[in-house]
Amino acid sequence: MARESSMKRKRAVSNFFGYVALIIITIIWLFPFVGLVLGSFRSYDAAVEYGGIVDYVIPKHFSLDNYRFVLGGETNYLRWYGNTVIIAFFVALFQMIIILCVSYALSRMRFAGRTALMRFWFVLGMFPGFLTMICLYFLLKEMGLTQAGAIKGLILVSVASSGMGYYVCKGYFDTIPKALDEAARIDGASRARVFFEMILPISKPIIIYAALVAFMAPWNDYIFASYIAFGHDASYNVAVSMYRWMNTGDYQGYFTRFCAGGVLVAIPVTLLFMFLQKYYVEGVTGGAVKG
């Protein structure tokens, strides 16, 4: 009895410290987002408050000026936002298809050059990608997919090389017993039928994972997007246009507007992520095990 209660007390104490640690961690982790949201409600109008960087978090006056600015017609923000949504949508769609194709082929079929291909792609991934930007730019330019066509160009480049990111998905397919398709094959089903009618229906988590990861990447693409869209405001994405607000001298005092734009970017991505978090966890876990 006495031992049990001491155990209980011990556990209560350790849980208490656990909660303290978790609360501290949560505060640290959420602080930038709270700061971002609060910053977005600070006016940039000189008569009210200052729109640059300040050393306090809570705005002195609450205002919607920044949202009015980004959503109003003063900039192309809505256009940039739309561009990013379009890019993210198509990249997610095509990249998912390609990854599924590659993963199925590599997981289920044995053909000459299979391991060689996997190793080759693996090695390719170690070459720093930024160096090849200028080369990609001129390739795309030759196809008319820069500046005005930059959105299509960005989709093409993201999709074209996506086959190399098959690891996680192939790992998932590897865990589906091979006996399943062998039985179907004996019944006369073709490889394609096995793929479409057996494997895909039970791969929902990994399909969603692949699409989700692909959907989130374009929101971050600043470097390459600015490289191939330069000089053509209408084909920028949000990252390109908003990065300017933070880092170009022409945009002094745009900090709070950046915050507002950032909040608007974060909302859909965060919501989507929260809804699909379960699948993401499955993907991350499975992917880690198989590497």
């Binding site: 330019k141 500046q147 330069f230 000089g231 300017r244 170009t248 022409d250």
Partner: peptide, 21 residues
């Protein structure tokens, strides 16, 4: 007329003169 800041303009021109302003 396009909005390209003075800092970016030079970099972009150098990347690809033919597509520049």
């Amino acid at each position: 007329v396009e909005a390209v800041g003075e800092g970016d303009a030079a970099g972009n021109m150098i990347t690809d003169v033919t597509a520049g302003a």
